[in-house]
Amino acid sequence: MSEGKAHITNYSTLAMVLGSLLVLTWATVSITSINLGPWSVTAALLIALLKATLVLLYFMHLKFDSKLLKISFTAVIVVFFLVILLTFFDYLFR
């Protein structure tokens, strides 16, 4: 585990991340306002995932954190999706 000096994120980086988040918010609002049928759910969720990734990597510093945190965080997400998938094995085929 690297125990060197903590990484300090610049103000400008943080501001740029916020900018991107706002742009993505605008994008998701406009995409869902046009009727894409089932695709609007997909699009909205993909954008939400992108936003969440930005928050995680920069605001929450995951990008600069130890490998342990990155791996275990990924594990949480993977487990969560597997649980949803397995639950749908029931509901999709009922």
Binding site: T32, A44, A48, V55, M60
Partner: peptide, 22 residues
């Protein structure tokens, strides 16, 4: 701060799921 970001993170998903997808 991390806790506060978590609140933000959850909202990022709540917002489209309830307000937008229709």
């Amino acid at each position: 701060g991390l806790y506060w970001h978590l609140v933000d993170l959850i909202w990022i998903f709540l917002f489209p799921l309830f307000y937008l997808i229709h």
